[in-house]
Design a protein around this nucleic acid. Structure first.
Length: 370
DNA sequence: AGATTCGGCTGTCTTACCTCA
DNA sequence: GTTGAGGTAAGACAGCCGAAT
């Protein structure tokens, strides 16, 4: 099911034809990605921008392209439309040189690939990446709890199998029964006592930070990367896999929240604008009744150019041309003023998938708003 | 074409930790 | 200062689905 939120002509069937004047709320993504969050916060509506979860796939594909060292950068013909929901806010990335050491992914061809070079490998996809929010820095994202709590976990929680690596712990590799490098098992993790209890551990600060940095570079891992990361962090590959799964899910959830908030603001702005225009219309009608000469204005028909979607006017002189134009105070009927009266629509965000043919050489319409 | 494998996504459970009264 | 309730974040898992083989 697709919900079409049309901002354009109500007469056009935007949901069925290819005229992209509306953006859609994909039920698949809305229900799935917002489900947990809506239970808690009831944000009203969520939105899946783009093309049915393609953004995640885009990141994955780009990552894989990096790994394969393909030279097809920027030549991807199947590049999905990236809809920037929010204004591009240049948020400085935290320095990545605070890693314990550089991340070296072993690519498939065996060559070691240093990926800790800033955000060079990051897909510049989202205009507003929740991972780069200043308030969602490394520690805040990965570990909202205090540093002390993390260290408390490291040294105080594990009763029988504390094995410290650096400052962190190695409890997981112990409980894995020496499964490092083994294939990820989907069964529940039995600890060394054979108890089938699902013991939950807290990753150390260093482990979380390392995983975060890895996630900034690659949102998905190939088996080799997963094994290398698990070995480096003394975690089970399954743990790394699960961590990335959860991280992706939470990133998506946060992005959905951000998108949702932005769309709510857009909706409020449009509602206010609609209210204001209704009020203006009422004022014009009132003026029309009070001023009988008002209707002797040259009839001005406002039409929208289907090509550039700008308002044009055609004046039909049905009345005396000597009649001076009378305009209502504060209101204008010229073609220039109409778009200016709708500042939001003039500065509409680029995520509206409008098709503009302004570069069309055959487009001879003299733009009134130029 | 159907079976199998694999990886990602989603929903849910569980646990650790924080806040506050 | 201690404690318990409530909330939240995060780790873990099962099930499902799509793609690849």
């Amino acid at each position: 099911m697709e919900l079409g939120l049309s901002l354009g002509d109500a007469n056009t069937n935007n949901t069925t034809n290819s005229s992209p004047k509306s953006f859609f709320l994909s039920k698949k993504n809305v229900t799935s990605s917002c489900n947990d969050h809506e239970k808690k916060k009831s944000l009203g509506f969520c939105m899946a921008l783009g093309i049915n979860s393609s953004s995640e796939r885009v990141e994955q594909d780009e990552d894989e392209d990096e790994e394969n060292n393909t030279s097809e950068e920027g030549t991807n013909n199947t590049l999905p439309v990236q809809l920037d929901l929010l204004p591009l806010v240049p948020v400085p990335l935290p320095p990545t040189n605070n890693l314990p050491q550089s991340l070296h992914w072993s690519s498939d061809n065996g060559s070691s690939e240093n990926v800790s070079s800033g955000n060079g490998g990051l897909p510049a996809a989202r205009g507003f990446d929740v991972n780069r929010l200043p308030a969602a820095g490394m520690d805040e994202v990965s570990s909202p709890n205090s540093v002390a709590s993390s260290f408390r976990m490291d040294f105080g929680l594990f009763k029988s199998c504390v094995n410290i690596i650096g400052v962190g712990n190695k409890r997981n590799s112990v409980s894995a029964g020496g499964n490092d490098g083994g294939e990820p098992e989907r069964a529940s993790d039995d600890d060394e006592n054979g108890a089938n209890t699902r013991k939950k551990l807290r990753l150390s600060k260093e482990q979380s930070a390392y995983l975060e940095e890895s996630f900034k570079e690659h949102h998905t891992l190939n088996p080799k990367q997963k094994l290398a990361l698990a070995k480096q962090l003394s975690l089970r590959p399954r743990q790394v896999e699960v961590w990335f799964q959860n991280r992706r899910a939470r990133t998506k959830l946060k992005q959905t929240e951000v998108d949702c908030e932005y769309l709510k603001r857009c909706c409020e702005t449009l509602t206010d604008e609609n209210r204001r225009l209704h009020k203006e219309l009422q004022e014009l009608r009132a003026l029309k009744t009070s001023n009988p000469f008002y209707m002797q204005l040259p009839a001005t028909t406002l039409t929208m150019c289907p090509s550039c979607e700008r308002v044009a006017s055609t004046t039909t002189t049905t009345t005396s041309a000597a009649t001076p134009p009378i305009t209502a105070p504060g209101t204008t009927t010229t073609s220039d003023s109409i778009p200016k009266a709708i500042p939001f629509l003039n500065s509409r965000p680029r995520f509206f998938p409008f098709t503009t043919n302004n570069n069309n050489p055959n487009h001879s319409h003299q733009s009134a708003a130029s």
